[in-house]
């Protein structure tokens, strides 16, 4: 464990907690893509199957449970909470995310570290996480609504990406056999798509703040 990875895990967790608190506090999820949140929950469920079989550390186990619980809590809020679900932009959140699930699963069948169920699902979760933000990006392009996409959420999501890339550079430099090509290449693609999301977020945020200026 290095400081970059710890910071990356903390900012990743904070981004999920900040979003959950925002949705729960305002009882609104307008502007949030349920599909992206479902894909994130699927990423954690597919990746943390080894929760009960391989014990790596207390930290690792606790964080896996917290990631699964918090991402499912967001999906539960948006799907079932009587007040929140009314504010879901169902007609705008139309990205066909099943193609993302199918495509990344096929890729995981081809590109994996070992052709075992656990490794295929792990690679699937890595590829899926890279593209999971796409429904949110499309929804943001369509709605321009950043009410619930707080600046903190976007900041922590970006910090998570930055710290993980620093973590891989650090591990590559300090560990003789650090070769995690699947995680590194997919993580770089994920960071690129995040940068695109950040660009649309910044544009929308600027337009909204212009709109809100006193006439």
């Amino acid at each position: 464990m290095n400081i970059f990875r710890l910071a990356g895990d903390m900012t990743h967790l904070l981004s999920i907690i900040v979003l959950l608190l925002k949705i729960y506090a305002t009882k609104s999820c307008s502007g949030i893509s349920l599909k992206t949140q479902e894909l994130y929950a699927l990423v954690f469920l597919a990746r943390y199957l080894d929760l009960f079989t391989d014990f790596i550390s207390v930290y690792n186990t606790i964080m896996k449970v917290v990631f699964i619980a918090s991402s499912l809590a967001i999906v539960w809020c948006m799907r079932l909470h009587p007040l929140v679900k009314r504010s879901y932009d169902k007609e705008l959140d139309t990205f066909r995310h099943y193609f993302l699930i199918g495509g990344t699963f096929v890729l995981a069948l081809v590109l994996n570290e070992k052709f075992t169920l656990q490794e295929i699902l792990w690679a699937f979760s890595i590829y899926l996480e890279a593209v999971a933000i796409l429904p949110q990006l499309v929804l943001l392009q369509r709605s321009g609504n950043v009410d619930n996409l707080t600046g903190q959420y976007v900041f922590f999501l970006g910090a998570y990406r930055a710290f993980y890339i620093l973590n891989w550079i650090y591990r590559y430099l300090t560990e003789p056999r650090f070769t995690r090509w699947i995680a590194c290449v997919s993580g770089i693609v994920q960071t690129g798509i995040y940068a695109d999301f950040f660009y649309y977020y910044f544009i929308s945020w600027k337009n909204n703040s212009k709109l809100k200026l006193p006439a």
Binding site: R5, D9, H12, R47, D50, D54, I56, N60, M63, K64, F67, E113, K114, E119, W122, N167, R180, A183
Partner: peptide, 10 residues
């Protein structure tokens, strides 16, 4: 055969 690395990253 090469055992895949245990995935210690979250």
């Amino acid at each position: 055969d090469k055992q895949p690395e245990t995935h210690d990253e979250l």
